[in-house]
Design a binder for these strands. Structure first.
Lengths: 126, 126
DNA sequence: CCGGATCCTTGAGGATACTG
DNA sequence: CAGTATCCTCAAGGATCCGG
């Protein structure tokens, strides 16, 4: 059986299909809170509460939910210390750090285009 | 008056403050549909309907909404041809293409870690 | 301290219909 | 064809409490 190979203009990720695994992962990762958490973690190892402080505006629930999602996808490693009161540490895994590099890119991009965007907004809103 | 300068580990973007302009822009851009639209546009100039086909699963409304948002932020240029029926073309602006580069990075990352993530998920779900 | 469960509110987002 | 508006639904997300 011959399978037809579609030509990809860019780098051949089939995010086009809404039901593909790639697209599913992309949808998990491409959301504000997940990216901000990854950015906040950086190279550090942070406890839940400390991490919460690092991401302004995030709720207890959102942080917890997103951390579980990131852990499930293997981007974040969760270490539980059997002390009392419990202590839980979070850190990026290797894949997580790799992703962080591109998120850094997005942050830098934001910074670099602040002016242009603000101007464009004013033009548009007027 | 001396203002204390916080040290930034990475590249000094103050996405930490939920109310800063940078954070606002980041929140606009860091969402699934916006990124998929940017990716779908690539270097092309596409009409509304064609773009809609390029992003599987997106609704008319979401596409319209996100396009207006991207246009407002100056990432997408909208060209209306005064024909009948009307024809509207969308293309990335320079800042838009710059952002696309980092989105490409995210796509490549997704592709590269598909296996690891799928495995991690199975471990986690079991 | 960590984080799951529960309740409740708001807004994201789909379907449809209508204007230019 | 493009795009806005309207209605409707359901899930995202906040506040709170409890249990480990």
């Amino acid at each position: 059986m011959v399978t037809k190979q579609l030509k990809d203009t860019s780098d051949g990720v089939d995010l086009r299909r809404a039901d593909s695994l790639a697209r599913e992962i992309f949808s998990d990762v491409a959301n504000k809170w997940a990216l901000l958490i990854i950015e906040a973690l950086g190279d550090d190892t942070l406890r839940f509460t400390r991490l919460r402080d690092g991401v302004e505006g995030i709720s207890h629930k959102m942080l917890s939910q997103n951390l579980r999602m990131l852990e499930r996808n293997g981007l974040v490693e969760r270490t539980v210390h059997p002390t009392v009161p419990p202590r839980v540490d979070y850190a990026l895994t290797e894949p997580g750090r790799a992703l962080r590099a591109t998120v850094d890119g997005m942050c830098a991009w934001t910074q670099r285009h602040l002016g242009h965007i603000e101007a464009s907004r004013q033009r548009f809103d007027g």
